[in-house]
């Protein structure tokens, strides 16, 4: 055996010995460095369920990180995507074990990333909104909120939550507009959901102009939607009934639009809204008053 061969053999034996002594965490890290997150999970996941790794914050952090990377690779935006839920669980556990300072910052950053991914997916649900996806969007936001509050119990997500509810109100409203009387039962459901979402948004942030304005528009337009169904087959009795239902909605819309107007007194759309609602309520003088205000506002504009 040549010296060269011996040295080579020693190197191989030493390397094997060193690899054999590597902890599962080290091995997962090494695999992660090569981008083999799936193998890293296979090695690490069973180990953290046993002692001594079960009580090791860093091991849970590495597992959480691996799961997070697997989630990213999967591209899933599902509410219950297992890698994302697993990552949150592992990172939460790592954080609860009192990690060292460096790990603490990294765990928080990873959780923050996951929280924002839930938030982003909630927004995506609204952008591509389909009937009935309200609950999923809210659940995704709920996951975001839970992580953020876990990271900082004093954090305030009220504004974001109000925005989310308002967007849900809008999303249902847009579907409602597209219905054009095809499905009256669905129309009622969409209208009620829209109003309910706006109402929650306004409970959270009462002085929200878009929330007030949109709620008023939703109520008013629903009244008009009923009126537009009137035709030559409508009996006098039905006409009176429809009229009462519509006026009820117009009456609900008025104080909401007035509250929006108080928040932005010179906004043209609100003035137009008030002019229109008063007109629909047979209040010609009030309607004219807002028409004059609109004219004055337009005159002032350059």
């Amino acid at each position: 055996m040549s010296v060269k061969s011996f040295l080579m053999m020693c190197f191989v034996v030493c390397s094997t010995a060193v690899f054999g002594q590597q902890s599962p965490v080290d091995r997962a890290v090494a695999l992660g460095q090569r981008g083999d997150w799936a193998q890293a999970l296979i090695i690490l996941e069973p180990e953290v369920k046993k002692m001594p790794w079960q009580a090791d914050s860093h091991a849970w952090y590495v597992l959480g990180y691996v799961q997070k990377e697997l989630h990213k690779a999967s591209g899933s935006s599902e509410l219950n995507a297992p890698e994302r839920l697993g990552a949150v669980h592992s990172l939460d556990r790592a954080l609860s074990m009192g990690p060292n300072r460096e790990d603490d910052a990294l765990i928080r950053a990873a959780l923050d990333f996951l929280a924002r991914s839930f938030f982003r997916d909630a927004i995506d649900r609204i952008e591509g909104f389909t009937e009935g996806s309200d609950e999923e969007a809210l659940a995704l936001f709920g996951r975001y909120e839970a992580i953020i509050l876990n990271l900082d119990p004093m954090a305030n997500v009220t504004g974001q939550k109000a925005d989310l509810y308002r967007y849900l109100g809008q999303a249902n409203g847009l579907l409602l507009d597209r219905q054009e009387g095809r499905d009256l039962a669905l129309e009622t459901i969409l209208f009620e959901r829209s109003v309910a979402h706006y109402s929650v948004a306004l409970e959270l942030v009462p002085k929200d102009y878009p929330g007030r304005y949109n709620l008023a528009i939703t109520l008013y337009n629903q009244g008009v939607r009923q009126l537009k169904r009137i035709n030559h087959e409508t009996s006098m009795f039905e006409l009176m009934e429809i009229q009462e239902a519509c006026v009820g909605l117009f009456e609900q819309a008025l104080p909401v639009m007035e509250a929006a107007h108080l928040l932005k007194p010179n906004r043209l759309e609100t003035l137009k809204g008030l002019m229109t609602i008063h007109y629909a309520l047979s209040q010609q003088e009030e309607s004219s008053r807002y028409r004059d205000a609109i004219d004055r506002l337009i005159e002032k504009r350059p």
Partner: peptide, 21 residues
């Protein structure tokens, strides 16, 4: 995501709809 408002107010003439009937 739209920040301001959903739909615009329906400018159908509500009084005209009722009067017509």
């Amino acid at each position: 995501v739209p920040q301001q408002q959903g739909g615009a107010i329906d400018d159908a003439d509500t009084q005209a709809i009722m009067k017509a009937n």
